[in-house]
Every structure is written in structure tokens, then in C-alpha cells.
Design a protein around this nucleic acid. Structure first.
Length: 458
RNA sequence: GGUCCCAUCGUCUAGCGGUCCAGGAUAUCGCCCUCUCACGGCGGGGACACGGGUUCGAGUCCCGUUGGGACUACCA
């Protein structure tokens, strides 16, 4: 009847990537669903590769995704004394021993064993020598010699390792720092973590960690190993597959709820349902419905979700989200009502905030940027005559729904189809041949701007 | 090489022995709507990797093959 406590434990050696975001999400979901705690632990023991800048970047990405954590983040580098304490305990109990083997020798022996068709594991040379500390020495865990170590994974089911496959892993490096496997176990024990949800790439660490739990006399938590996210070529997702960092998606104009929804559905399902709010997920999330196989990251489906959420966003909110992409260009911002109206005309026509900004840009320009191909095609003498006609007709403001009748009248007078009569006007207003509806555009622009834009083409 | 994991439409998946000549979503194609582009609506094509078992019956259970992936550090 203990409280559910989950954790997300990134190492600050890079930005938060989509795979990390997904495991963070699953941990968050599990804790929030059970009314438990979700804690953040920054695994910064590798001083060489870790940086505060990445720590800050990870925290802000989590915040953007609305994955809130309980309490202050825990920094692993500040817990070294605790790690040492546990290592000393294992040492004094004979569950760990000093090893004087040098890295270079080890490598040589590993190479030979491999060449002889053996396994590249530690040969146990110092295991029974009863050595003490020495410069350059490390501490190894004394693993069981036979038997099996296994667990019932909440995602993968029963997983079992033969203990003979596992060698005596180093728990204290020669520089006095604990190794990853030792530090995680000590911290997870000390932080009372009940469920460890992490990437698939950790399954091979799990049996060793379980042995450490046992040696420490602590009950092992539940483990759930989430499959990897792959790129289109089915190899592990990396930079060469395009953007992998969460904040890169923010910059490209994706909504956090779209990314979250996408990541959740990549590997997890709830019947045929595709759309989930964070709140809804919290209700129905279930580790047993997380798939066991790796999934390919599919930007097209992310796009679909993003446009879905874009369409759902109220226009005034959308204006706030889109404006940052327009502001740097120096445009004057129209009043709230006008902005909302503009948003309404574009919000179904783009997949990202950047696309929306791009599609709305003509409203803000003094004169729209002319698409040269479209212009060349449209600006015939006949169409210029049409534009003159439009200029006459559009001198006064249009009433609601009036454009439709006007378009038919102009088309009939000029003996062309309505579509053909509209295109020159569209080009004049927007600079291209694809745009929102002209009735909306015309009423937003108003007679003065309309006249100016037509004149520019005559 | 060894260990571990995985295998349903291009992609994400539903399916927990019979209701599946396999359902949804996305992508794609076609039609409709229409001042363009979108949106939306309707429809089409598209998958149980292969081989053995078990069973009255297998996408669903077992074994093998093949194919992917992860790990194999004094990195996390």
C-alpha cells in the first residue's frame, strides 16, 4: 500500500529528445494517475559531458510539455557521499571487493578471450585475492556465480538472465566516483522509487541492478522497459533523421499537446482512440497497453495531430501563438479582434504555427510579395482589365455575404467563370493564387488597401 | 561473436483461440463540396515475415528459421 513514486533521470549531456520526452511522459502519467509523486533526477556524474546549460534546457522542455515534477530536481553529483556509504557497506560485507586490474590489461584479456571464442567478461582475477584500496584500484560487485536473475517486466513480461552471463561489474571507479549502475540503484533506493519506467536500452542493466538491490537488502521496484523510437530507416532515432530535440519542434511551430499526444500514441494505445488530452491520458493510461516493439517516428502523423490542435485552438489564443513568428519581421500588430479574424481565415490551412504565420503574412505587408510564377500566369491584358473592373466595384465596403453575388456579376459581365474572375483579384490581394476565401480577405483589408494592392499590379 | 528484446497495411496500431475472407488512424489515390488553397464528406487500394507443431479451430499458444533492434566501458 505504498505510494507510487516514479522518476525521470536524464543525463544533461544534450537536449531533451523525443525518446526521453516519451519516457518522461509515461512516468509522469503513471505517477499522476495513481496520485503519487513524479521526481526528476539529473544524472550529472559525468562532469566531462554534463553541463548546466543542458540541465536548464531539459527543464524548460519539460515545462513546455506541461510535465510538472514534484519537489526540486535532485542532482546526482551531490549525492556522492551517499553512494560511497553504500559501496563501503558492500565492501565490509564482502559483497564487493577491490580489484587492481588495470584498464589496459583488462582490454587485452578481453580481446584474447574474444579471439579464443570466449565471452568478453571480467575473468575474476581479483575476486578472491582479498585486496585493499590502492592507487588506480576499483571496487567490483561480487555477483552470484550461478542461478538466474529475472523480473516480470510491466511491458515486456518475464525476462530472465543466466547469472553466468553477468560479470562482476565495477561499482566504484578508480577516480573515486560510483559507476552508473551503482549510483542509480542507490538513488532509486534512497528516493523510494517504486516504478522504473525507462528505455528499452536498459534491459541489459536490469539484472545487475536487481542483484545490487538484493545485496543492499532493498526490495526491487517494478520495471517497465519502453521500446525505442526509430527513424524512418528503422535505426535508432538520431540527428540524421532530422529534428530529435523537443524544443526544435517548438521552434518549428508544433503545439506541446500535439507532440505529447503523438508520443503517447507511438507505442501506446487505448482501443481506436487517437486524440487524447493530457488529462484524459491520465485517466486511461495503462502500461500493459504499451507495445513491445520499437516504433518509427512518423512526422506526417505528428503533422496531422498538430493541425488538429491548431484547428481547435480559439483564434485569440492562436494569435498569441502565431505572432512571435511574425513580430521579428517588423509588422504592426492589428487589434485583438482583427487578429482573431485573420487567424480564423488561416487556421485550417496549415500544419504548424510557422505555416500559419507564413500563410497570414500578406495581411500585414504593405504590398504582398508577388509569386513570380503565379504573376506571370495571371497578369495577362484581359486579367488587367478584370482588375480595373474589380477596382471600380470594390470602392465601397462590402456587406456580409455580398462578395459572392458580386463575383458572379463580374464574371458574367466579362464572360468568364467565377473562378477565372477571382484569381486576378486573389493575386492582387495576396500575391499568389492560393489563399483563404476572398470574401474574408476583402473585408479584413478594407477598400483603401484593396485599391492600393490592385493599383500596384496595373 | 555472445546475451536479451522484438515481428499485423508504407507508418502508428486494434486484436488477449472461434464474432477477423483482420478494425481504426495516418499517408496515398479517386469523387463530392468549392472563387483558389485548405477544411470537411464519401469511396478505393494496402498487412497477420516464413516453416513446423498444439487444437475441432491460430493473427492470437509452443518450437524453429529469417529479419530487425538493444547491450556487450572505470558513459549514462
Amino acid at each position: 500500500m505504498s505510494e507510487t513514486i516514479t522518476r525521470f533521470a536524464p543525463s544533461p549531456t544534450g537536449h531533451l529528445h523525443v525518446g526521453g520526452a516519451r519516457t518522461a511522459l509515461f512516468n509522469w502519467l503513471l505517477a499522476r494517475q495513481k496520485g503519487g509523486r513524479f521526481v526528476l533526477r539529473i544524472e550529472d556524474t559525468d562532469a566531462q559531458r554534463s553541463s548546466d546549460e543542458f540541465t536548464r534546457a531539459i527543464l524548460s522542455a519539460m515545462t513546455w510539455l506541461k510535465l510538472d515534477w514534484d519537489g526540486e530536481p535532485v542532482y546526482q553529483s551531490q549525492r556522492l557521499p551517499l553512494h560511497r556509504e553504500y559501496i563501503d557497506k558492500l565492501l565490509s560485507e564482502g559483497q564487493a571487493y577491490w580489484c587492481h586490474c588495470q584498464a589496459a590489461d583488462l582490454e587485452e584479456r578481453r580481446r584474447k578471450a574474444l579471439a579464443a571464442g570466449g565471452k568478453p567478461k571480467y575473468d575474476g582475477l581479483c575476486r578472491d585475492k582479498n585486496l585493499g584500496p590502492a592507487p588506480g584500484a576499483v571496487v567490483r560487485f561480487r555477483g552470484p556465480e550461478g542461478g538466474e536473475t529475472g523480473w516480470n517486466d510491466l511491458i515486456k513480461g518475464s525476462v530472465v538472465f543466466d547469472n553466468r552471463e553477468l560479470d562482476d561489474l565495477i561499482i566504484l571507479r578508480s577516480d573515486g566516483l560510483p559507476t552508473y549502475n551503482m549510483a542509480v540503484v542507490v538513488d532509486d533506493v534512497a528516493m523510494n522509487i517504486t516504478h522504473i519506467v525507462r528505455g528499452d536500452d536498459h534491459v541489459n542493466n536490469t539484472p545487475r541492478q536487481i542483484q545490487l538491490y538484493r545485496a543492499l537488502g532493498a526490495p526491487a521496484p517494478y520495471f517497465a522497459h519502453v521500446p525505442m523510437i526509430l527513424g524512418a530507416d528503422k535505426t535508432r532515432l538520431s540527428k540524421r533523421h532530422g529534428a530529435t530535440s523537443v524544443m526544435a519542434y517548438k521552434d518549428m511551430g508544433y503545439l506541446p499537446q500535439a507532440l505529447i499526444n503523438y508520443l503517447a500514441r507511438l507505442g501506446w494505445s487505448h482501443g481506436d482512440q487517437e486524440i487524447f488530452s493530457l488529462d484524459e491520458m491520465k485517466q486511461v493510461f495503462d502500461l500493459s497497453h504499451v507495445g513491445r516493439s520499437a516504433g518509427v517516428f512518423n512526422p506526417e502523423k505528428l503533422n496531422w495531430l498538430n493541425s488538429h490542435y491548431l484547428k481547435e485552438t480559439p483564434p485569440d489564443e492562436l494569435a498569441e501563438l502565431v505572432w512571435p513568428y511574425l513580430e521579428p519581421k517588423g509588422y504592426a500588430r492589428p487589434d485583438g479582434a482583427a487578429m482573431a479574424k485573420i487567424m480564423l481565415t488561416v487556421h485550417e490551412r496549415g500544419k504548424t504555427l510557422t505555416e500559419l504565420a507564413e500563410k497570414a503574412e500578406f495581411y500585414f505587408q504593405d504590398l504582398p510579395t508577388l509569386d513570380t510564377k503565379d504573376a506571370a500566369k495571371i497578369l495577362t491584358p484581359e486579367n488587367k482589365a478584370l482588375l480595373r473592373e474589380w477596382m471600380e466595384v470594390l470602392r465601397r465596403p462590402l456587406g456580409g455575404g455580398e462578395f459572392e453575388a458580386l463575383l458572379r456579376r463580374v464574371a458574367e459581365e466579362k464572360g468568364v467563370k467565377p473562378g477565372a474572375a477571382a484569381q486576378p483579384l486573389r493575386l492582387a490581394m495576396t500575391g499568389r493564387t492560393a489563399s483563404p476565401g476572398l470574401d474574408d480577405i476583402l473585408s479584413i483589408l478594407g477598400p483603401e488597401k484593396i485599391r492600393k494592392r490592385i493599383e500596384a499590379l496595373l
